[in-house]
Write a protein that binds this DNA or RNA. Structure first.
Length: 881
RNA sequence: GGGCGAUUAGCUCAAUUGGCAGAGCAUCCGGUUUACACCCGGAAGGUUGUAGGUUCGAGUCUUACAUCGCCCACCA
């Protein structure tokens, strides 16, 4: 079958022109949709980790896009019904913060404009900013099915959230109640454990005296003196001789004079601080546990904004830190303070707002998570879900095995409102609770104002986006999905919760494989940040170099699960590689002559270089397949680059010019077919890495099929892999290298044609029969064979490569002394290698115990080196005469 | 306190079952032969963090340590 290529390939790849055009074409043709595959095709589905709806593209998005699009394009080319389902997350806290900032800039606030107006403004904001990231993903070449794009606050997804919440409630897995929760005073909402980040900070440890009845004092240390006002006990260790006599006595809260007990508990560490512990159950998780154990009172002294409430007596109304200072002053005046010292400890801060989080008692909604966690653990244990790299499974298990109930309510306005109603009963406004879509019949029901944690809705993402809880065709066909590709930083936040909720609600793990990538960091391991000014903006890169170089660089810069330090010079290198591939295609294109049959000539009709490049190509395809199978995409990209840049271009392409320019019709045809075959395979292999250039270049190669995006993924042909051919060719190429070096050493003008003489041998025959190799690669006009027993030619530089002895007649250029010295240098190099190999083979243990093929390799090497050494000796001897 | 990762050329990183440690950038030398100066040919650059162990053979497996980073955990 004859195939045609477009002609007049542009000299350069104009990414700015090509990218939008090709992208629109792909999309219009429907190739991003799984329906473009045959109906019986197996599905391959990735749910895109939904970016924040109002966010804009950063380098992390670019990384996931590059990786996921690579996976999708690869599977699409393998004939799967590939579906990459895009979408956006409403991102409760992040979005609300942005809108609140906007309101602040306008001189107003969400409280001032009220709930309805605030939601209205937020939706408006979403409509304005919402398309940004989607447009940016398109510029990167993301082949998502945009018609299936979803947003977590869409009707369908909101329905999924309702269904999930109500189901869990009905199963008794959701409860509401007052608990000590992490409270963010700035945001005035509860946050989950995961949303609190604790880092060591320099603080002050305050030492003071707790007055005890009878005039005694109990020394206590704290980092948060204001919480003294909420103390309901002082605890000491039961065996502590210093304080044992005080156990059971009454102590008095400083300034407030409130009476509290001195209790004993072995939780107290006698060695730490003063050995006595103030107990503040209302504002400390440990103390809360202690209080439950000892049935202590619980006192809340903070308002929602972390100012002091009425329980703080005269300090009511003060900010927590003002109170800290004032109380300490008063205590000092009262003679109750001992000292302060600097102290390093971990301070819990809100991941979003950054302000210090306070444990506060508050009524919240919780998911009883253990039953869900158990299922999620089992699914990974039994391999229904695989995590790549595997070491994260351990992290995953550890978290799930120690999981705490999930606080899912947030006191925000932007999000899924919890489907619950309250009715006052016996003076308690929440005396009656109803969970459901609608309030029960009767008057007085008030809807819950709290919304759900953003991660609750994203936890349903892989199935809610496909229509769940409706039994849609998409859900049936595309769920469970195959791949969840995301950052390891949201393993707990998102991945674990999707697995838990997916297994619980759909009875299926939501995906088969979790591939975790790392963070993209700047040179030196620094985090990219705007303040440091070291951020690489993906769009700037795309504008400067195109999307392909950015994608290729991101994919080849890292390994699964590890952070990658992005080196900007790699971007330029990728750009040059992409240009290189374009130029290679252009070269082949311009040497075509009309239609070409897309078949390789039979092996027997192919010359040594052609059989060599086909062997190398098929070995490459094998390797790439292996690397894709184990998700080592970066290494795969690197190997394709190395093959093209270091083997195909500098050797085969160059050698082929002989046939193309001076060969017979048959030779021309064979060269064209081989060139087209190899380049075509490479473009296919590269397509998932650099879709734009490869698609555009492919049009200029003879091809069948409409587009590269839907072309078949290459499969290795084992018949074409041939060790012997590769060995023969590499000897020839070694000869080329040596001739080049020798020419260089004798300063032979590169443009000057020289001739060469080789002593007859099998390898020398290869060289002679493939004269184009030497002609094209080192400008050697003709190679004459010398009978094995002939005399050494005179006035020649000599080269020894394995069993090949080459002589370069360098009339008038040869300096005997210099040549002797050069050969002596060669000899020394060989002697070094020889020594190593001889030593290995002299080792009886090596010969007996090493794998036979390894031993054989060493033996072959020894023979080669010995032959080379012998020839060098001969040559040196003659020169010496 | 527990866990994980990293440590390889000046810098950023590779190295598929243990089998001659490799790229890119930077450096140095040499090149304008009709695909590509977004190029080509060469050179230099290494005790693979340290000290042991296993092995015929270790960057790779193992033990300890060091430094850096990350995650988890309730010591005021």
């Amino acid at each position: 079958m004859n195939a045609q290529a477009e002609s007049d390939m542009p000299r350069n790849f104009d990414f700015a022109e090509v990218e939008p055009r090709v992208y629109d074409w792909w999309e219009r043709q429907g190739w991003f949709k799984p329906e473009s595959a045959p109906a019986e095709a197996a599905p391959y589905v990735i749910s895109m980790p939904p970016p924040n709806v109002t966010g804009s593209l950063h380098i992390g998005h670019a990384l996931f896009t590059a990786l996921e699009d690579l996976m999708i394009r690869y599977e699409r080319m393998r004939g799967k019904a590939a579906l990459w389902l895009p979408g956006a997350d409403h991102a409760g806290i992040a979005t609300q913060l942005q809108v609140e900032k906007m309101l602040r800039d306008e001189g107003t606030s969400r409280e001032a404009i009220g709930y309805e107006e605030f939601l209205h403004r937020t939706w408006q904001w979403k409509e304005e900013k919402g398309g940004t990231i989607t447009r940016q993903l398109r510029r990167l070449g993301a082949s998502c099915d945009w018609e299936r794009e979803r947003f977590t606050l869409d009707d369908g997804l909101s329905e999924a959230v309702l269904r999930a919440f109500i189901t869990l409630w009905e199963q008794g897995l959701i409860y509401r109640g007052p608990r000590l929760v992490n409270w963010s005073p700035g945001l005035k909402t509860a946050v989950s454990d995961l949303e609190v980040e604790s880092n060591e900070e320099e603080v002050t440890l305050y030492f003071f005296r707790y007055p005890v009845e009878g005039g005694a004092h109990l020394p206590v240390a704290t980092t948060r003196p204001e919480t003294i006002l909420g103390d309901t006990a002082v605890a000491v260790h039961p065996n502590d001789e210093r304080y044992r006599h005080l156990i059971g006595k009454r102590a008095f809260v400083p300034i407030l004079e409130r009476e509290i007990p001195v209790i004993a508990d072995d939780y107290v560490d006698m060695e730490f601080g003063t050995g006595a512990l103030k107990v503040t159950p209302g504002h400390d998780f440990n103390d809360y546990e202690l209080a439950r154990k000892h049935d202590l009172k619980l006192l809340n002294i903070l308002n929602q904004d972390a100012s002091m409430n009425a329980a703080a007596g005269k300090y009511a109304g003060l900010d927590r830190y003002e109170c800290r200072d004032e109380l300490w002053r008063d205590m000092t005046a009262a003679g109750l303070t001992i000292k302060t010292e600097p102290y390093r400890t971990r301070i819990p801060r809100s991941q979003r707002g950054g302000e210090v989080v306070e444990p506060i008692m508050s009524a919240q909604w919780f998911v009883r998570i253990q039953p869900l966690a158990d299922k999620a653990i089992a699914a990974v244990r039994d391999g229904r879900v695989k995590i790549v790299p595997q070491r994260f499974e351990k992290v995953y298990f550890h978290w799930l095995e120690n999981i705490q109930d999930w606080c899912v309510s947030r006191q925000l306005w932007w999000g899924h409102r919890i489907p619950a109603w309250y009715r006052e009963k016996d003076g308690d406004p929440e005396g009656e609770i109803h969970v459901g879509r609608e309030p029960p019949k009767g008057d007085g029901w008030v809807m819950e104002r709290d919304v759900l944690d953003t991660w609750f809705s994203s936890g349903l993402w892989p199935f809610s986006t496909l229509g769940w809880p409706q039994e849609t065709a998409d859900l049936a066909r595309f769920y469970p999905t195959q791949m969840m590709e995301t950052g390891h930083d949201i393993l707990f936040f998102w991945v674990a919760r999707m697995i838990m909720l997916g297994l619980w609600l759909t009875d299926e793990p939501p995906f088969h494989t979790v591939y975790l990538h790392g963070l993209v960091r700047a040179e030196g391991g620094l985090k990219f940040s705007k303040t440091l000014g070291n951020a690489i903006d993906p769009l700037t890169v795309v504008n400067r170099l195109g999307a392909d170089p950015l994608r290729f660089t991101l994919i080849t810069s890292g390994t699964p699960g590890n952070d990658c330090h992005l080196d900007e010079t790699r971007l330029d290198h990728s750009f040059r590689f992409i240009n290189k591939v374009w130029q290679m295609t252009a070269f082949i294109n311009m040497n075509l002559d009309g239609a070409l049959e897309l078949l390789l000539p039979p092996k027997a009709a192919l010359d040594l270089p052609s059989r060599w490049i086909l062997s190398r190509l098929n070995r490459l395809i094998e390797n790439v397949q292996y690397l894709f199978d184990i998700h080592q995409y970066g290494e795969a990209g690197g190997q394709i680059l190395a093959f093209m840049w270091d083997e195909f271009a500098p050797f085969y392409l160059e050698i082929s010019k002989q046939a193309l320019y001076q060969g017979s019709d048959a030779q021309k045809n064979a060269a064209r077919q081989t060139l087209v075959h190899v380049q075509d395979a490479c473009l296919r292999l590269l397509h998932p890495f650099m879709p734009f250039m490869t698609e555009e270049a492919w049009r200029y190669l003879p091809h069948q099929g409409e587009a590269l995006i839907i072309a078949d993924w290459p499969r290795a042909n084992g018949d074409l892999i041939d060790d012997a051919i590769e060995a023969r060719m590499s000897l020839c190429l070694e000869a080329v290298r040596e001739i080049r070096n020798t020419r260089g050493e004798f300063a032979v003008d590169p443009g000057r044609r020289i001739s060469a003489i080789a002593r007859e041998s099998a390898a020398a025959k290869d060289l002679a029969e493939n004269a184009q190799i030497l002609r094209r690669l080192c400008n050697v006009e003709a190679l004459t064979l010398l009978p094995a027993d002939a005399d050494e030619p005179q006035n020649c530089a000599s080269i020894v490569v394995g069993e090949i002895s080459l002589y370069l007649p360098l009339e008038g250029l040869l300096d005997v002394a210099a040549e002797s010295q050069r050969l002596a240098g060669e000899k020394a190099k060989i002697a070094e290698k020889l020594a190593r190999t001889e030593k290995m083979l002299a080792n009886q243990n090596f010969v007996e115990r090493a794998r036979p093929d390894v031993v054989q390799r060493e033996r072959d090497r020894l023979a080669d080196l010995q032959a080379a050494a012998a020839r060098l000796d001969e040559r040196l001897a003659r020169l010496g005469q």
